[in-house]
Design a protein around this nucleic acid. Structure first.
Lengths: 195, 195, 195, 195
DNA sequence: AATGAATGAGCTTTCATTCAT
DNA sequence: GATGAATGAAAGCTCATTCAT
């Protein structure tokens, strides 16, 4: 897969749009090809099959998503600040890109188990970022040192994910980003050492 | 929909098994009919279409799920105890029913948006139960009084849901129920007044 | 495969016609279904897949072909007479059924190796009939007793098959059946004890 | 068709190998180009289309095949000896070249009628060689003078062809060349005057 | 002459749903 | 009410061929 070829990116972008507009099951390869301005067969020069398009969409988009967050938090100097940045950037990036939000929160969940496991692999670096913040908080003596890290990570990710999914399912009728503070307060309360 | 007819329940039970065993996409109406011991056409005497089977499955199973929890928490006498019971029963019921856990956490998510919105409607009573616990906690002066209730509810539900989904996707290789205390501690720390 | 259902036979007959008219490669399932007067999907109630149609066509037709020959030769009372009947009936049956001749001599040869091996299995009973005639001729002291039976059988079958194929490929412009005597003379000369 | 260019022959040789290894239907132009070490498009500088490659393969290979036989028999001084040489060389050449045997006996038969008619044209010189032997045998008073020459030629060619095809389809598990004597004996008995 | 990226027509098979019995 | 044979629309993928470079 030659990712620097322009057609590769055309197809990825077209796929995001088509999936967001038509839903996962109604996203025929022909529709994606048409929106990308290439022939059906061209898709198969860049992707192994339809599933490969979907995985690649998620990989590319999630890669950018994580990179943005990772590069933003590196300048924050404690775990609480990093967590706040992670939460607000998580909300921010999805609030900014309507298609992406629909695709990640709703459409990609409709894939089969095998595909979801691949998606989980792609998510791992993000989960590692969360883990690292928790560990740093423990070292900084901000968070309790008896935390079950995988469990805490699931709680954090589950919270963020559910909030975004709800927001998307309610047609994004309310302000997502402004909830960052409340969410951050909730999570840090749950993790903090009792002073 | 004549729900007291025995065939209705046969079909519902068959559907849960077939979906759990074959996955959402490979759950043909013919397979469900076969497992239920009825003819394909008979399905359509009890359900409008395939989607209606799935919604009904979720409605029936979720109804029982919520009823169990609601009846258990009514005897607890404060919000923290109720929350603990809700968490442990949530985990308990899904840990006990392997098929149900797979169907609710993985398979039903593969449905389209329209179906998922119907599922969300069915979930509402459960979310109301959570809301009521939060409100009670505020009244009892156990939880802070400035909580954004819908947001808190999303965080609680998101946390529980993500933890169960993770557990199912890892083939239920670890003990789910024993995590109740940690999860309860995390959530109540996030909500409590005194820290 | 329920062979007494009328649709099964409709499809077999339609398949022979469609293959004879359009050739093997241009014989779409849709064309066969159309000619048989059934829906495309109905084909798959009676046949596993397209290849199964072709094998079944050959099996059914070859079954009749062999049965006719076998029942005709049983009343002949020596190997030479039996061989003559076999030759003339072989020619006769294919000369009578234009579609069948095209399908067996030309179209079915275009199948892949796997299919051809299945076809060879179906042919076996016919080859056994030939073998039995040779053996009988040896016992009757009409044919030489040092014959390599598999080789002789291949020579007989190869001769008949090539003659029919030539006749079909030349658009059946000459009389096939009338060649029976010459062919019979050639073969028996090759097999006879030298008197 | 510039047949003396090296790429022409590279493509022909590659085609024989690819067809023998993959079967007729799985022999994509791209595979042949790849094995020949040329670009897909280059194929079309030397051949009109895919069918033209196949016809050319047969033409080239059959040309050599016939030339070998024709030059060998010219030194034999009677029809019986010539026939023996023809039979043994027919077997010998195919037994020596595994790929060629598979391609001529199995794979090229899977082509459509039009292609097979072209192949038949290419075979004509070989059939003429057989005809000439028969005529010579009649003149030499070795063979009967009332022979139907085209029919006899079909019987001879059909016999040889069927024997080779059988041998190829049985994975060449037995010795082909050693059958020459039996086959020769069978055929000459069928043709000879004196019995 | 040579390349190889791009094209797009073409076809088997599945399965939710119907309806005559 | 119950059946299950029949329906037919729908879509992913392949591959021979082209043509701009």
């Amino acid at each position: 897969m030659e990712k620097n070829k322009p057609k590769y990116n055309q197809i990825i972008e077209a796929a995001v749009e088509v999936i967001a507009e038509n839903g996962f099951n109604a996203s025929q390869v022909a529709k994606i090809a048409n929106k990308a301005g290439v022939a059906d067969g061209t898709i198969y020069l860049y992707f192994k099959n339809k599933e490969d398009i979907l995985i690649s969409v998620f990989k590319e988009k999630m890669g950018e998503f994580i990179k943005e967050i990772a590069s933003s938090i590196q300048y924050e100097d404690n775990a609480e600040a990093k967590l706040y940045t992670l939460i607000s950037m998580h909300f921010h990036q999805l609030a900014e890109d309507h298609h992406l939000a629909v695709v990640t929160q709703l459409e990609l969940r409709q894939s089969n188990i095998k595909l979801r496991q691949e998606i989980n692999q792609i998510l791992k670096p993000y989960l590692t970022v969360i883990d690292d913040i928790i560990k740093e908080g423990i070292e900084e003596n901000i968070f309790r040192d008896n935390l079950n890290i995988p469990l805490v990570r699931q709680m954090i990710f589950g919270t963020l994910d559910e909030i975004v999914t709800n927001w998307v399912m309610q047609d994004q009728r309310y302000e997502l980003i402004s909830q960052s503070s409340d969410v951050h307060a909730f999570i840090t309360s749950g993790l903090s050492v009792n002073h």
